[in-house]
Design a protein around this nucleic acid. Structure first.
Length: 137
DNA sequence: GCCAACGTTGGC
DNA sequence: GCCAACGTTGGC
């Protein structure tokens, strides 16, 4: 299984909205970046991801699961853009802020730190374990 | 609200 | 195929 990180501005799409979608999940649409799209194309059913709030909060707030493989993004006619569906799995007991991640010497190589603009990122198994633990899971 | 970093676009 | 111009993202 692979691990990922999904970034969203809570004003646009928040963890609370994701949770409200329940088991059905929701398209992670609107991505217009090749790297992010390629990451989604590489995802498999059951892959896990962090849900990160950018701009407001700037913290990892929960765990999601890929529940539909990459398919055309319903918000565009442009055939270049695909996306997966994700569903909320469990909330963090406490959010793990960007400040904490930056301050942790074990996490300095995270994509979130090195290329903060990439909206769908790979996460290593090691990083997954560290941040999950910081979040109280 | 600013601005640096980055990705994309389009003219040549 | 290069690169300047432009738009967007996201931390601060």
């Amino acid at each position: 299984m692979a691990y990922w990180l999904f970034k969203s501005e809570p004003d646009t799409w928040s963890w609370e909205q994701q949770v409200a979608k329940g088991e059905v999940g929701e398209e992670w649409n609107g991505v217009r970046n090749y790297q992010a799209r390629n990451n989604m194309r590489a995802m498999k059913l059951g892959d896990r991801g962090f849900f990160y709030h950018s701009n407001i909060g700037k913290a990892v707030v929960g765990v999601v699961e890929v529940c539909a493989l990459s398919h055309p993004d319903s918000t565009t006619e442009d055939p270049r853009w695909d996306c997966v569906d994700i569903k909320a799995v469990e909330p963090f007991k406490r959010p793990v802020t960007l400040d904490e991640i930056k301050a942790d010497p074990r996490l300095t190589d995270m994509v979130l730190v090195k290329n903060s603009r990439l909206s769908v990122q790979p996460v290593t198994e090691e990083e997954w374990g560290i941040i999950r633990a910081l979040g109280g899971l």
